[in-house]
Simulated assay, not measured.
Amino acid sequence: MNKVIWVLWPSFVAAVIAEFVFFWVINPQQLYFLGEPVEMSSYATYSVGFLLFWLVCAGSSLLTWFMLPQRPQADHHHEPDGRTAPHHGSGLTSAH
């Protein structure tokens, strides 16, 4: 479930921004689709536009998530008895 949120939340925020910018510039009553004027109410146009923006942004976020390299979790290490303990070091070594 956590990975789904990593995809949907950033795409939601990006879709909100895209919606505001697009409809700040474009009047929904002046839109054309396949050469015909869009005959929906402004609210319906905003809703459909937002869902389309969210779909595109979710696709982009999902593609980014798939392209991330698979890394082992570096914040935990295993104790000799098999327990997992938090990692307290920064992982950086200092040059002396």
Score class of each variant (00 low, 15 high):
82 G>Y: 06
9 W>E: 06
34 L>D: 11
62 L>R: 01
80 P>Q: 07
44 A>D: 14
35 G>E: 02
27 N>D: 15
53 F>M: 14
80 P>W: 10
37 P>C: 08
77 H>R: 05
14 A>F: 10
26 I>T: 14
64 T>V: 08
35 G>M: 02
27 N>Q: 10
37 P>E: 05
50 F>Q: 02
54 W>A: 09
14 A>N: 07
48 V>P: 03
75 D>E: 15
6 W>M: 14
58 A>V: 07
18 A>G: 01
34 L>M: 12
3 K>G: 08
66 F>H: 09
85 A>W: 02
70 Q>V: 15
74 A>T: 15
24 W>Y: 15
18 A>I: 01
54 W>E: 04
61 S>D: 09
22 F>A: 12
54 W>H: 01
72 P>W: 12
77 H>C: 02
47 S>K: 04
69 P>N: 00
8 L>I: 07
17 I>Y: 03
13 V>R: 10
25 V>K: 12
46 Y>Q: 02
64 T>S: 10
5 I>H: 09
15 A>R: 01
91 G>M: 07
91 G>A: 11
89 G>C: 09
6 W>Q: 15
50 F>W: 07
66 F>N: 11
20 F>Y: 15
28 P>Q: 00
3 K>W: 07
26 I>D: 14
3 K>V: 04
87 H>Y: 09
15 A>E: 00
92 L>R: 07
38 V>F: 06
78 H>L: 10
69 P>F: 02
52 L>K: 06
74 A>N: 13
